[in-house]
Design a binder for these strands. Structure first.
Length: 486
RNA sequence: CGGGCCGUUGUGUAACGGUAGCACGCAUGAUUUGGGAUCAUGUAGUCCGGGUUCAAAUCCCGGCGGCCCGACCA
């Protein structure tokens, strides 16, 4: 294994993860700040990751019969205000248009923070019969939430996401949809982002404003904090009763439809950066890397060698294209070797192939893995078989590492003294018995900053007896995951 | 939204109220090239709006933006 080389001007992840994060976002060319508070310009390298996420998830959606639509960015205030909990939850962060066309508007228009209201209103027109159900729609769009404190990707004033909105005949069918969407998100994180998340149900105080139940994917960040990385909500008839989404069933009885919504946003990319990145910059899993391979040409000491290297690189480039790897060749000899290597390392390209006079001579290549910097020689004839195999291996290794550190950053605790100690000394995910009362949860948050993240799906059945709540001592019902949020 | 720090060329920084300088980058050329190489020449800047002053990057007021802490954050 070759050791990592220091990057000039890049804060070390282990020293200050916050500075490191901002440095990597900028230096890897993922995004830049814009002139409006909390907004960012997503650059090609960052946007390509988003497009990858889109194409994978959209493929799964379509297979399951989801239909894509587009609803307007603007929502009349009166529409937005119809569901009480919803408006109470979102109004503090709402952006509102008061002037347009050079005049003050008679009614202000909200910029959507989410589209339950506009879409449910149309469901009322579109759903008449049980035969119209389920209606399963999705849109890829931007939303605006005026957060007080922002970070690139993790919490921006405007962000890109996908919002699924569906209506069903009953709770059972809606719940199937909620779990299907949640499963897509979990699968995407594991298989594409190579991140092992926790998946579970949110407590009452943490659920979506207007939802009956909220399920979420929670990512453990290496500093021990939690990132809510995707959500899936069962909305029951909370919105359908307000907007009168009724259908006639087989017996000609009028019934309210049961509803779901689910989403994943550009925040996911923030999680990806934080989980896999290292002191040398970004580390991308091959499955979502804009380019999986970079071939770097090393010029020889004599001019005629340069030509040979260039033609060798283009030969290899073609071989890799033939096996479906998105390769980029880099034979720009104006920059020194070290400069070019550092650039591609910062950008997190999973595999680097170095070719110089030695490789041309031996018909071999030198391949270097980004995730562990290991370096080996390989016969060029084996490239088309070996490169996909190595990429596949890297993908699995990253998931394995992610699972290991997730487990290392999770601890089971029974006493509040230990709980406080962990949150004060080294932040972690804490799995602890809880009485499931909101007051108790609020006190824990006040005293330790930790909030409930979720009740893991595989622990819902595991009802405790004779176990006191970690905080108040009353009988606990389940073991919940607690952590400080991002 | 409260507290703190801050805003000078593409980036990082310097300048007592008095000539805006340095480094990196970028451009051109040359020498280089197995981990951010060297030299020469060139390029480009005081966040925005007011005010004080003979004179403002510098002082004052307001705004906008960034980072940290807090509150807030389905």
């Amino acid at each position: 294994m070759t050791k990592a080389f220091e990057k000039k001007g890049l804060t070390k992840k282990s020293e200050n993860i916050s500075d490191w994060y901002h440095d990597v976002v900028l230096r890897a060319g993922l995004a830049e700040y814009s002139d409006v508070k909390g907004c960012m310009i997503i650059k090609p390298h960052g946007y390509a990751i988003w497009e990858k996420l889109q194409s994978v998830l959209d493929g799964w959606f379509k297979e399951a019969g989801v239909q894509n639509v587009y609803f307007p960015l603007f929502i009349p205030m009166n529409l937005f205000e119809k569901e009480k909990e919803h408006v109470a939850g979102f109004s503090p962060e709402l952006a509102v248009v008061t002037h347009a066309g050079g005049e003050e508007l008679s009614e202000p228009i909200a910029v959507r923070p989410t589209s339950e209201t506009v879409i449910t209103k149309k469901f009322a027109d579109w759903v008449q019969s049980y035969r119209d159900l389920p209606m399963v729609l999705n849109q890829w769009c931007n939303v605006v939430r005026w957060e007080k404190r922002t970070y690139p990707f993790l919490r921006t004033s405007e962000f890109l996401w996908q919002e699924g909105h569906t209506v069903h005949v009953d709770k059972a069918d809606a719940t199937r949809m909620v779990m299907l969407a949640l499963g897509w998100y979990e699968k995407f994180y594991r298989e594409h982002f190579a991140i092992a998340p926790y998946v579970g149900i949110k407590s009452n105080s943490e659920k979506f404003a207007g939802a009956e139940e909220t399920y979420s994917v929670e990512v453990v960040i290496p500093d021990g904090k939690a990132l809510q990385a995707a959500t899936s909500h069962y909305l029951a008839d909370n919105f359908t009763k307000v907007f009168n989404v009724e259908y006639s069933d087989e017996k000609e009885e009028k019934k309210l439809a049961h509803q779901t919504s689910w989403g994943i946003s550009t925040r996911a990319i923030g999680g990806l950066i934080l989980v896999h990145g290292d002191d040398s910059g970004l580390v991308l899993p091959p499955a979502v890397a804009p380019q999986q391979v970079v071939i770097i040409g090393i010029a020889g000491k004599e001019a005629e060698l340069e030509e040979k290297v260039v033609s060798y690189v283009s030969e290899l480039h073609k071989t890799l294209k033939d096996v479906g790897v998105r390769a980029v060749s880099d034979v720009d000899f104006r920059k020194t070797l070290g400069y070019r290597i550092n650039e591609w390392e910062l950008k997190g390209i999973p595999l680097r192939i170095e070719v110089g006079p030695k490789e041309v001579e031996a018909k071999s290549v030198t391949i270097v893995r980004r995730d562990d910097f290991s370096k080996h020689q390989m016969n060029a004839d084996l490239l088309s078989v070996e490169v996909p195999a190595v990429l596949n291996f890297i993908q699995k290794e990253l998931l394995k590492k992610s699972e290991e550190y997730r487990n290392a950053l999770t601890t089971d605790i029974l006493t509040y003294d230990e709980f406080k100690k962990v949150m004060a000394e080294q932040k972690m995910f804490i799995r602890a018995p809880w009485c499931e009362e909101a007051d108790c949860e609020a006190k824990i948050k006040e005293e330790t900053k930790a909030v409930t993240r979720c009740l893991e799906l595989d622990r819902v059945e595991e009802v405790l007896s004779d176990t006191p709540c970690v905080h108040c001592g009353k009988p606990a019902i389940h073991k919940w995951l607690f952590a400080q949020g991002y």
